Each structure stands twice: as structure tokens, then as C-alpha cells.
Amino acid sequence: MTHLPPFHLAFQVNDLEAARRFYGEIIGCTEGRSDSHWIDFDFFGHQIVAHLDDNAGSNAVSNPVDGHDVPVPHFGAVLEWDAFHALKARLEAAGIQWVLEPYLRFEGEPGEQATMFVRDPSGNALEFKAFRDPDQLFATD
């Protein structure tokens, strides 16, 4: 599997302290620079920036995927198998509600993956996934 360069993602939150707790304490992201209107986080080697917007809120749009209503837009990370399960345990311990409970997609097919969806305190949807075989990330057959 090739490693891509880090990406940058900016998104809106309606409460910086709640974002700091969720991304820092629960997800486990290291905090970078910040000021009174934004916070940088190291999101599994990528830079995400939570920008304060008092009007930010949950986006209730979804698309049907594998019989599930997948929230859009969403962002997330592809984790190593053990890291995925460790994060799942942290989310459960923190009482985070699932948008889609962890499950195995494409079982026995190309691209088999574990996936789960949650929302942050501002309603932003996040997907985390893991592949037993990381070389299957972009598999088509």
C-alpha cells in the first residue's frame, strides 16, 4: 500500500471546548495550534481544523449504502485493525452514540473492511474503517 501525503481538512463546530474534549480526549488527537476561534488537531497524521461557527449543526442528509443510511458529508480515517478496535472501545466507554454501529462490509469480497460512524458534539459525521489486509484499500476485484 502506498502512503499518501497528509491532508488538511477544515470544518465547523459550534463549541470549541466540546470539540477539544471529543477530538482530544475521546478520539485521541493531539492538539496543535489554536486560538479563540479554531483548533488544529493531529487526526491520525493529518491536520484537521475545527473552526468555531455558532450556527454549525447536524447535517441530516444521508445516502443508502449496503442497506444503511450513511451520513453525508462525512470524513474520517482508515486505521490499522487493532487501532480501529481500540477506538471502538474508547467510543463505547465514553458513551458516544453510533450513527452506524461497527460492522464488517464486503465480507469475503475485495475491500472487506470494518466500519463505524459517529457524530461529534457539533453533529459532524465521522467514519472510521479498517482493513484486515491494508492492500485492499482501493481493491476493485
Rank of each mutant, 00 (worst) to 15 (best):
R105W: 10
E17H: 00
F11C: 01
H8E: 14
D82N: 13
Q47R: 13
A94W: 09
D82A: 15
R20M: 01
L4I: 11
A18K: 06
R132T: 09
S34H: 12
H68E: 14
L91F: 03
T30K: 15
G108N: 05
E107L: 11
L137A: 08
L9P: 00
V61Y: 07
A114R: 05
D69K: 09
R21A: 06
Q97P: 10
G57T: 03
A86G: 02
A50C: 07
F128V: 11
D141M: 12
S36E: 15
E127R: 05
E92Y: 04
G111C: 05
G57V: 06
H37F: 11
R132L: 15
E17F: 00
D141T: 14
D141P: 04
E127C: 07
S122E: 01
Q47M: 10
E17G: 00
W38C: 10
Y23E: 00
I96Q: 11
T140L: 10
E92G: 09
D69M: 09
I96W: 03
L137I: 13
F117K: 08
Q113Y: 07
F128K: 04
G24I: 07
D53E: 03
T30W: 10
H8P: 03
H46A: 04
A125N: 04
Q47L: 15
H8Y: 11
I39G: 02
N59A: 02
L126G: 06
Q113N: 14
R21C: 09
W98T: 04
D82H: 14
E31C: 09
V72H: 07
H3L: 14
E92Q: 11
P110S: 13
S62Y: 07
A10C: 10
A139S: 08
H46Q: 05
V118Y: 01
S36L: 12
R105Q: 15
Q47I: 12
V99W: 04
S36Y: 12
H8G: 03
L16T: 01
A60E: 13
A18G: 01
G76L: 02
V78N: 08
H8T: 06
G28C: 06
H46E: 04
A77Q: 07
E101N: 08
D66A: 15
R21L: 07
V78F: 02
K129V: 13
A93F: 04
A83W: 03
D120M: 00
L16M: 01
A130L: 03
C29Y: 02
F11P: 02
D40A: 08
T115D: 04
P121K: 00
I27C: 08
H3C: 11
P5F: 05
D120W: 01
T30H: 13
W98G: 00
E101K: 12
R90T: 04
S34G: 02
V49K: 10
H74E: 06
G67V: 09
D54P: 09
K88A: 10
C29R: 00
G24L: 07
F106N: 15
L87Y: 01
P110F: 12
A89V: 11
W98K: 03
L4T: 12
A130G: 08
